[in-house]
Design a protein around this nucleic acid. Structure first.
Lengths: 280, 280
DNA sequence: AAGTGGTCTAGACCACTTT
DNA sequence: AAGTGGTCTAGACCACTTC
């Protein structure tokens, strides 16, 4: 894939297309490169060069060319591959780094972000103890089941109603105190062979397992939070009184390409913990 | 303040101080500038040039040299003032823009962020309707009172226990339905002369009023969310049943320099709304 | 010593806005 | 036409890591 650069379109955004229109003439380009792509019939989506580079890098992440935890090529190498300057690659990687898709390490290189890392552990776990330092909870898998996706689940996962989904119920405890009841729905097509046993024997965050065992890396999630009261079933699982107020956290998680791959409904007991959020 | 540049220290971070040690020798600097600041006795905090520039710009924001909504000097002008290249100023402003302290507008310039803008309205209002598009709630001020700061309030506002604080209670409604009960505590020293009347006659977000009338612009906030049940008093104010589950949102808001200037406890009714949050 | 990302500068051209 | 921010390039040097 050495000639990936030919796909880079250096073009005027939002401008009428004229033959050989070229935003950045050769005099301003990397010396010795003859890249200027032809225009006719090109896709109607124009964007700055660094955005195109960013998109190409994202595609390589999505395709699995570079896997979570792995080192990606150096900025100089990518610049050479895409036939652009290092500065342009740099700006693309800057944004990917800001979005937590990659992690830069001075002197070592740029790595694909992974959930097998201390720094990623609490990015998707927002419940923190009122006193003391955050720590990771213990997991207890209550149930793993295959079922046909109900309409609402299918809609949010962007699959067809009735498609196979994996349902998981688990309880998470802090220092032995049951605190979180999670119900998860995962597309069956992606999470083939997921069993309670594998979930139980795996130590560490579930997103790490998803990443390693099913090639699915979560990049972002969208949550909706409401207050509810515990019903009989929930009260029993969390060992609390029926009617205890709980946070109801509905999450849709996305992998590369903003594809939804997890639906989660968490019930959080907030008598000793709180959901933390920074507004900025 | 044309010679502000003399305060810029171009130095090696994390390195033993040697006479005239200079990270960026004149050959790499703006031609014709003789800036290199002397070293002896300098503050022990070293950082990249653009961070120092960022800090200088922040100081001007904090001092009120440029007020919310106003245009700040162009990148070229700032570069000239601080005796650095435009690229360095640019990187400083990039970060300020990412932190929502300023807003760039191509062709027009860079403006100090303000809460009198549609784009800022929902940055600190996370409650959205389950159906339909978000819109701003109606305000009803229940009570405005001066009191002595209780210990907990004083601690969070970083003032002395017993110092004067302004207490505000208000109810916010969506389409006439009471949904949010807010209790606020504000440092009395900053919010002198704040009355129920002024709050009531002011239309628009309260942070806009704080900005215009009291020179206090909120830049970020930290929230802790829990689930509770409505007591008798709350139930009456929100016109709901006692025991209804509510979100309890505790917020500390900060102005320039990360100085806490507002403590807020919001109770959110989430039967028709939800608290939205993006994890990334 | 070599390679990586991090910082800084300089200069060019573009898109957008205002005069 | 002039001024602003936005993009792209090129080259230099630095800090950090590994060999």
């Amino acid at each position: 894939m050495d000639d990936a650069g030919v796909f880079v379109v250096k073009l005027q955004p939002m401008t009428s297309i004229t033959p050989n229109a070229n935003l950045y003439p050769a005099s301003a380009m990397s010396s010795g490169s003859g890249v200027a792509a032809s225009v006719a019939g090109a896709s109607p989506t124009f964007s700055p060069l660094y955005q195109q580079i960013k998109s190409l890098i994202t595609q390589s992440l999505q395709s699995g060319e570079w896997k979570p935890g792995e080192l990606i090529p150096s900025e100089m190498e990518l610049a050479s591959r895409f036939k652009v300057s290092q500065g342009t690659v740099r700006k693309a990687i800057d944004e990917l780094s800001a979005e937590n898709l990659v992690v830069r390490r001075q002197g070592k290189g740029t790595f694909v972000a992974t959930h097998h890392e201390a720094r990623a552990q609490f990015r998707f776990l927002r419940l923190a103890p009122d006193e003391g330092v955050p720590h990771y909870p213990e997991n207890r898998i209550i149930e793993v089941r295959r079922l046909r996706a109900p309409a609402e689940v299918a809609r949010l996962l962007e699959i067809k109603s009735g498609d196979s989904v994996v349902f998981i119920r688990r309880v998470q405890s802090f220092s032995g105190v049951p605190t979180i009841l999670d119900d998860l729905w995962l597309p069956g097509s992606i999470f083939k062979g997921l069993t309670a046993e594998r979930l139980n024997e795996y130590k560490g965050p579930m997103y790490g397992l998803f990443e390693t065992e099913f090639g699915t890396h979560m990049i972002r999630a969208s949550e909706q939070i409401r207050a509810i009261c515990a019903d009989e079933t929930v009260a029993q699982l969390l060992q609390i009184e029926k009617g205890t107020p709980l946070l109801n956290v509905e999450r849709v998680s996305f992998t590369y390409g903003d594809k939804p791959v997890e639906l989660r409904r968490g019930l959080y007991l907030t008598s000793q913990h709180h959901y933390r959020n920074e507004l900025s």
